[in-house]
């Protein structure tokens, strides 16, 4: 891939977030290019989830800015939000709805054209393997299926950017493989940021890794670079977040 041809999709500049006196993000800066799958690593409480919540406009930053494809997430929040698909860590879903009702609602609220909703729903349901549970109420779904519905929701509008907060926690090895393949497929054309604690997942899927600790970037590079420097990813993680 030519370096100059890469389009910057997400540009984070001097992002700082405080909760009262508690500094959660400390002057964080990085950018993510189109077609990049970025693994976001760090111990619990390092600021991964907070960063994601700010990129998606759920929380405001204390200072700093985020540009999505050149647009500021504060001034052009509606435009940037429509470019992003987001799966929060807790996989929040409307439990009283049935799977197809929920997905149809997502398609509508995301502004898909009337004629495109049905074919797109079919596509997403097939991609995420939801055919069997379409008529089931969401609160009766297993953890694995909930995760898939959450993912279906995030990719519904074919967003340029996918932000997934620990998308594979609580899944069995088969499901993890499926989600991993899905992320890879999507990552060919889109931009993906995902956080995880499973380090083998990172070398299997990401082109780039950012490790943060106490709200600061402590290491970044391709998985190969990090492995070359530290021996393996576990070692890199341990040394950088000590």
């Amino acid at each position: 891939m030519l370096k100059g041809a890469k389009l910057t999709m997400i540009e984070i500049k001097n992002l700082t977030k405080k909760f009262g006196q508690n500094l959660v993000l400390d002057n964080l800066s990085f950018s993510v290019a189109k077609g990049e799958i970025l693994g976001f690593l760090g111990p619990n409480g390092a600021g991964k989830t907070t960063t994601m919540k700010i990129i998606t406009s759920f929380w405001p930053a204390t200072s700093g800015s985020i540009l999505i494809n050149g647009l500021d997430t504060v001034g052009n929040s509606l435009a940037t939000r429509s470019k992003i698909g987001y799966l929060p860590e807790t996989v929040p879903l409307y439990d009283d709805m049935r799977v197809f009702e929920y997905l149809k609602f997502v398609a509508q609220i995301r502004g898909l054209a009337e004629g495109k909703i049905k074919p797109r729903l079919k596509q997403v349901v097939a991609t995420c393997g939801l055919t069997k549970v379409l008529r089931r109420p969401i609160d009766e779904l297993s953890k694995g299926f909930r995760q898939r519905v959450g993912l279906a929701q995030a990719i519904m509008h074919e967003p340029d950017i996918l932000i997934l907060d620990e998308p594979t926690t609580g899944l069995d090895p088969n499901q993890i493989m499926e989600i991993r393949d899905l992320i890879k497929t999507i990552g060919r054309e889109k931009t993906v940021i995902f956080s995880t604690h499973i380090l083998s997942e990172v070398s299997a899927t990401c082109n780039r890794v950012i490790i943060i600790n106490n709200g600061k970037i402590v290491g970044q590079g391709s998985p190969a670079e990090l492995i070359g420097k530290y021996g393996n990813l576990e070692q890199a993680f341990r040394e950088l977040t000590k």
Binding site: S57, F58, A79, R81, S82, Y86, T90, L93, Y94, D95
Partner: peptide, 14 residues
């Protein structure tokens, strides 16, 4: 309580 507000308010709606 269920966290769906995070889904709702990150949609492109005012």
């Amino acid at each position: 309580k269920s966290g769906t507000i995070e889904f709702l308010l990150t949609l492109p709606i005012t």
